[in-house]
Nucleic acid binder design. Structure first.
Length: 481
RNA sequence: GUCCCCGUCGUCUAGGGGUCUAGGACACUGGGUUUUCAUCCCAGCAACAGGGGUUCGAAUCCCCUCGGGGAUGCCA
């Protein structure tokens, strides 16, 4: 069994393509199949090496690996279509020689005109104008300087059956696949629907698992395979991933490139888990599964036929779950850049303190990047005091607490910080939320957050003292003026 | 327009003739834990697109309608 993922390097790895890659990879793992990565870079204007590299990078980040590919080599290369033009040329020459394809001299402008005329009346398909050109007509077109494309001569009255592993039996007739289609452009570059057949055959692919948007292309490909006496493969067409407006997922639905998910602080295991579960369900109502568990259970036959709307909420929930499941040691390097991004000098902080901070703050994180807005509460010299906290700290009730806090730090520097709450309680006569609320605001600058006990533990005597002093200066002292 | 695919809670899904007064998860609501919020735990809300058949019996099989999607490119 040999599977493949064949992206075109025209941008970042899209989340929908990532799902296709993941499912192929998971299946390859399950069946110990070879997994081939092929780069479909025949759209020369839009393809780039940078895109290819970023796609490979994103695939690796997701934990996907392949046995053969442009970087890995293999016995059936090259693995970039742009490096295989001589192969495609041989086959198109053969089709031409056998009369199964022909030169078409229609210009893009002419075709566009035919198309728009047809749109008014009804359906469009290529008229077949150049199907049976006389030598005379050909000569004339050539004399006009027209560069021909090569069109595949679609046979009449053929039935094409796709026995799709997911969709079931789908029957097409050669009459209504849109007429003779172009297989080689006028500049000599071959077209997807044609070369995909050659590559899959030559690379000994056994199962083509790809997006449903290719289902209608499949009869064209099968017709090509027949014409070339190449094998027809097993197909499995994955239902598409949609945005919340039920349109194919695209940029306007939010972030759609794997690259962005990584930057936002999603974990690859969450993305893999979520994408695998989109259109598939594991036994026993389980939602959170490791790659190995998914590999054990996943089957093409059990994948959903219907399109699925991408649920960002659920992905976030799952990501939060994986954040909580990770060890602190694993989390630290992932969160460190974000903590630094919040302007905190992590080099000045003991590793032990950082780990403990992450432990305390982690329940508040759905994304790794969420730590950025939280870290300041525990690690900044002086945290940001939000509006709610400022309002609270300006009340007379808080004034008393602020004053007594400063007392605690200034007059008895030997005080045990763990006694702060007890001492303040006695000194102010406040208790319950009347005590904890303003104290929280004073220490963290926020009205909500982790246990004050933990906050005090991380801040220590000095940290708490600095904040109390800051608040005294800002809210208490200024009010006395 | 034509061809093709699809249609169970708001969303992802389980279910494939009787065990379905339709199960789980996210979201939402309420409660518990907590000084607060988050985590965690418990409970609740909420669906078989519509209409015809077939059958003793249909969410499950068939047909039609409607709805959604994809293809119809010298993109892949």
């Amino acid at each position: 069994m040999r599977l493949r993922f064949a992206p075109s390097p025209t941008g970042f790895l899209h989340i929908g393509n990532a799902r296709t890659a993941i499912i192929n990879y998971l299946l390859a793992k399950k069946y110990s199949a070879d997994f081939i990565l092929r780069i479909e870079d025949t759209d020369i204007d839009r393809s780039s090496r940078e895109s290819e590299e970023s796609i490979l990078h994103d695939l690796r980040w997701l934990g996907i690996s392949w046995n053969e590919g442009p970087d890995a080599g293999g016995n059936f290369g090259p693995y970039r279509q742009s490096e295989r033009f001589d192969i495609y040329k041989r086959y198109s020459d053969q089709l031409l020689a056998e009369g199964k394809a022909y030169h078409c001299y229609c210009t893009p402008e002419e075709l566009e005109r035919m198309r728009s005329n047809a749109a008014a009346t009804g359906s469009y398909e290529y008229s077949g104008r150049c199907r049976n050109l006389s030598g005379e007509e050909k000569k004339r077109f050539i004399a006009e300087g027209r560069k021909p494309t090569i069109r595949f001569r679609v046979p009449d009255g053929e039935t094409v059956v796709v026995d799709d592993i997911i969709k079931g039996r789908v029957v097409f007739s050669s009459e209504n696949i849109g007429g003779d289609f172009i297989i080689v452009r006028s500049d000599g570059v071959p077209v997807y629907n044609y070369i995909v057949v050659i590559d899959d055959a030559l690379m000994h692919i056994t199962h083509v698992v790809r997006g449903e948007d290719h289902l209608s292309n499949t009869p064209k490909q099968i017709l090509i395979a027949r014409a070339l006496s190449l094998p027809v493969l097993q197909y499995a067409h994955l239902s598409l991933v949609m945005g919340n407006d039920r349109k194919k997922l695209s940029k306007r639905h939010g972030i759609t490139s794997v690259d962005m998910y990584r930057k936002e602080g999603y974990l690859p295991e969450a993305l893999v888990n979520y994408l695998a579960m989109l259109g598939w369900a594991a036994e026993g109502d389980r939602e959170i599964l490791s790659v190995d568990e998914i590999v054990e259970q996943i089957e093409l036959e059990k994948l959903a036929k219907s399109a699925a709307i991408f649920d960002f909420q659920k992905l976030r929930w799952m990501n939060g779950h994986y954040i909580r499941a990770k060890s602190l040691e694993e989390l630290l390097p992932l969160m460190l850049p974000h903590i630094r991004g919040a302007g905190i000098d992590t080099d000045a902080i003991e590793q032990k303190t950082l780990l403990r901070t992450i432990e305390i703050l982690r329940p508040y994180c759905e994304l790794i990047g969420d730590i950025r807005h939280l870290a300041g509460m525990l690690l900044a010299e002086i945290p940001e005091y939000d509006d709610e906290a400022q309002t609270l700290l300006s009340t007379p009730e808080a004034a008393l607490l602020i004053k007594e806090s400063c007392n605690f730090f200034n007059h008895e520097p030997q005080n045990d910080i763990t006694q702060l709450v007890t001492v303040l309680k006695a000194a102010t006569g406040l208790k319950g939320k009347h005590l904890f609320h303003p104290l929280r605001a004073l220490l963290t600058g926020k009205l909500k957050g982790p246990d004050l006990e933990h906050v005090i533990e991380i801040l220590g005597f000095e940290g708490c003292r600095k904040r109390a002093e800051y608040v005294y200066q800002k809210f208490f002292y200024s009010e006395q003026q």
